[in-house]
Simulated assay, not measured.
Amino acid sequence: MSKPMAVDNAVLAESAGAPGQPAKWRLGGALWLLGMPGVLAVVWALLPPLKANEALLPLPLWAVVLLSGLQTAVLLALAVAVGVWLAPRVGLRAPVVSSWLVGQPIGPALRVQSLPGIVGGVVGAAWLWVLSQVAPAALQPSDPASAMPLVVKLLYGGITEELLVRWGVMTLLLWLGWRVVQRGQGQPGKGLVAGAVLLSALLFALGHLPAAQALAGALTAPVVVFVLVGNTAFGLLAGWLYARHGLEAAILAHVLAHLLSSPLL
């Protein structure tokens, strides 16, 4: 596992206006806005099933929808804040967004992100296709029209999930390991980076179990193994891209994995 990207002393000192680095509130606001279309897409996708079961809801439909959206928006804000505050300390970055916010050309940062992100997207799409061929029958929707819309997969899965899991959770895990093991000195070692990638990938996979239960009706052993193995594998890929190249590489890979695999599933 490669070390995170090199960071300069100004970033490690966490100065809000360090040369080449946007102020924390600007970066946080930009990343939160980047993830909000995914939140809105999920809320939009929930409307039909909620409407169909409106009589069973404990609150009026509008209140359930509003609270659902607010909950996810707040979780996104917390994850973004964690990443904005801790990522520079452990050498993790969002280079493209940061360059754009400080008025620097985004081309150099984008070029560094593009090839790894595209390769990761192709690998991810192939993995999703393989998973579709071996998925338990319980996880295959009887009505194709009930499948998650592609726009939700692209916006929420590809962008919002990366902000929540990689930018938020993985950054926090790496920072905690760095503080405990290395006393906050130097750059995190390869083992710490690998551990953060693995743990965040496992949490990413566990986060898919409720949706699997809703689709399958019960979390049988084949369903649990399939969900954990399938999502952990992609989480490892996305986590490595984030650690080695930056957040945008992981986002690009996640978006492309869904986009390229969609016609094959």
Rank of each mutant, 00 (worst) to 15 (best):
K3Y: 00
V7K: 05
V7T: 15
D8M: 04
N9D: 15
A10N: 12
L12W: 15
A16Y: 05
Q21C: 03
W25G: 11
G28H: 05
G28W: 05
A30M: 08
L31E: 08
P37E: 04
V39C: 02
V39M: 03
V39P: 04
A41Y: 02
W44M: 13
A45Q: 14
A45C: 04
A45D: 14
L50M: 14
K51N: 11
A55R: 13
P58K: 03
P58C: 04
L61V: 01
A63H: 05
V65H: 01
L67H: 07
T72I: 13
A73Y: 05
L76Y: 09
L76N: 10
L78P: 11
L78A: 15
V80I: 05
A81N: 05
G83V: 02
L86E: 07
V90N: 02
L92T: 02
L92S: 07
A94E: 11
P95M: 02
V97Y: 09
L101E: 11
I106W: 14
A109L: 03
L110P: 06
L110G: 12
V112D: 12
V112P: 00
L115C: 09
L115G: 14
G121P: 10
V122E: 10
V123L: 15
V123K: 06
L128S: 06
L131W: 14
P136D: 09
P136W: 06
L139S: 08
L139W: 11
Q140S: 10
S142T: 15
S142L: 14
S142V: 13
A147V: 13
V152L: 08
V152F: 04
K153I: 02
L155W: 08
T160A: 04
E161G: 11
E161Y: 11
W167E: 01
V169T: 11
T171N: 08
L172S: 11
L173V: 10
L174H: 00
L176M: 14
L176K: 03
W178Q: 01
G186M: 00
P188T: 00
G191K: 00
V193E: 01
G195Y: 08
A196M: 02
A196I: 00
V197N: 01
V197C: 00
L198D: 06
L199T: 04
L202A: 12
F204W: 15
H208C: 03
P210Q: 06
A211C: 08
A212S: 14
A216T: 10
G217I: 00
L219P: 13
V224K: 08
V224S: 13
V225E: 09
V227L: 05
V227K: 08
L228M: 15
N231A: 06
T232W: 00
F234E: 12
G235W: 01
G239D: 06
G239A: 00
G246Q: 01
G246H: 01
L247A: 04
V255M: 09
L260C: 01
